[in-house]
Amino acid sequence: MTAEDPRLDREPDDSFAIQTFGLRKQFGELVAVDSINLDIKKGELFAFLGPNGAGKTTTISMLCCLLKPTGGTARIMGYDINREPYRVKEVIGVSPQDTTLSEHLSSRENLNLVGRLHGIDPKKLKTWSQLMLQTMGLADRAKEQVRRFSGGMKRRLNIAMALIHNPDIIFLDEPTLGLDPQARRAVWSYIARLKGEKTILLTTHYMEEADFLADRIGIIDEGKIVALGTALDLKTGMIDTHTMVVQAWNLTQKLIIEMRERYAKIDISNGTMTITDKKIDFREIVDRLHDANVSIRSAYIKEPTLEDVFINITGKELRE
């Protein structure tokens, strides 16, 4: 457990915003978070990627001092979550997974409430909230009760409430959940602007979100971090196969059999052939298809995605 973690014996390291030490949460028999050890540097945007129920929100809840860990601990800007919860709460901003707003208050009043609870001077808060409302595109609806807002507007306000008091660390739990692609892109651009200025811990189950935003990604499954690194590290380090996709008119059974003998994996679907192997030579495959009189509509090498990484890691083999 944590007592053996040598990092705990040392003075808090100034370069880290978040450090977890064997952080664990168990609900009865279910281990929701299984002894996570993590170091997140100041100014880093770290994404927790994982399916629903993987333990992302439980981890954030513990780091925000809403849930008591069953074991282990964590330091947030040097403050221990078990011993100094109120100090931790002073330095964090949280945007929960559900859009949680005071529905009969206006967007400005919601922002002011969080700001004042964090002890921000009213004059300063007035300027900050105006700026925040403008940034989030809510300035023209500042005085309107938020119960009349659309889902996208509420989501943006939800994020703004995490930022209004200028915290050192921002927790964004599934910030784009349920948004349409356009609104999701808009939220991404807001988050991208904060990169480098704030330490951000983001949870998501959208692969492209983590890929687009994160400096580092922790893939979490069944309460454990199963992979950790930059998106590039994960894609190159965790995937040892390559994939080529060919769309063609007249694929013959004979050719498919030949290809299956030559390459590790061949999938055929609606005139699309997907070839997977440790080594793929684009030219060689195109020539082979030409020689077999196949009319090629398109052909490309498919870059591995985080989804591939995720499937590769959390696939049957790993869980069995």
Binding site: C64, L66, Y86, K89, P96, T100, S102, V114, L117, H118
Partner: peptide, 14 residues
């Protein structure tokens, strides 16, 4: 129920 309280609980209010 709306989980607004849980957001408020992430502030330093006692």
């Amino acid at each position: 129920e709306s989980r607004f309280l849980y957001r408020m609980l992430t502030t330093p209010a006692r």
